[in-house]
């Protein structure tokens, strides 16, 4: 299986089963999460995931703008995903496009299913995701950053939302695609998991997979999400460390 399927350039899967950057099929790219990266926001996080760099800021619950979006029984969740003009090789035309609108929508809806919005009627919880550097999987990186930022902002929710993309490269199911794998691979399947319940609140697919491959991809993705979940919790624990202060008696 591993030796067929690769398109002309590049070779995505070596005969030894290693990927273009030397990872195994079930291996994540290096991930670091910093909770509370910004001062002005109510909550924030900075995520570096492989070559992705994503900043998320959460404001709210606060007054709704524009006012007509206000809901009398719950908070509205407004999400904006944006890519910086310099985030990709070829300059990205700044501003909203169809892709970023779609991603803003699916991320916002993922959070709607975990945030206890009824606790803050007539308010808005605003999530801003800025992609500073992109290398495939930015919607998942954005989701992870935004989720940590929401927890940092003290927003009540069912759980944190780890997210990862699984794909098919060189005929094999692989975790956490990087850019070349995303561009030249056969399929891409981003997902977001609620670890507490095991529910998926975001699931999209591009490309083709058989039913058996899909099942395998979902399993692999859930495993990846649980790994990411631990890093998200670790980032928050570092930010809110309750031990003695360093240098208290210096």
């Amino acid at each position: 299986m591993g030796n067929v399927g690769a398109k002309e350039i590049p070779v995505l899967l070596s005969p030894e089963g290693l990927r273009i950057d030397g990872r195994r099929l079930d291996e994540l790219r290096p991930l670091t999460i910093q909770a509370g990266a910004l001062h002005q926001a109510d909550g924030s996080a900075f995520v570096e995931w492989g070559a992705n760099k994503v900043l998320a800021a959460v404001y709210g619950p606060r007054e709704v703008h524009p006012r007509h979006l206000q809901q009398n029984h719950k908070a509205v969740i407004q999400c904006r995903y944006n890519m910086a003009a310099f985030s990709v090789d070829e300059r990205k035309r700044p501003g909203l496009d169809r892709r970023s609108q779609e991603i803003s929508k699916v991320i916002g809806e993922a959070f709607e299913s975990v945030v206890f919005a009824e606790e803050y009627p007539r308010t808005s919880i605003d999530i801003y995701i800025e992609v500073l550097q992109a290398n495939a999987g930015t919607r998942c990186a954005g989701l992870v950053a935004a989720s940590v930022a929401l927890a940092d902002a003290g927003i009540p929710m069912v759980d944190l939302l780890p997210a990862v993309a699984v794909g098919k490269v060189g005929g094999a199911i692989a975790l956490d695609l990087k850019k070349e794998e995303d561009n030249f691979g056969e399929a891409d399947l981003p997902m977001a998991l609620v670890p507490q319940s095991g529910r998926l609140v975001l699931l999209q697919m591009e490309g083709h997979m058989t039913e058996a491959e899909l099942a395998q991809a979902l399993d692999l993705g859930v495993k990846g999400c649980r790994e990411i979940y631990e890093k998200m919790k670790q980032a928050l624990r570092e930010r809110y460390a309750i031990g003695p202060m360093a240098g208290a008696s210096s």
Partner: peptide, 22 residues
Amino acid sequence: ASVLGLLSSRPPLVQVIPLSGR
């Protein structure tokens, strides 16, 4: 827990005292 905070068990309630938020 639904928020980030410190666990507090004082009968009759178990609750989480938030460490952040508005």
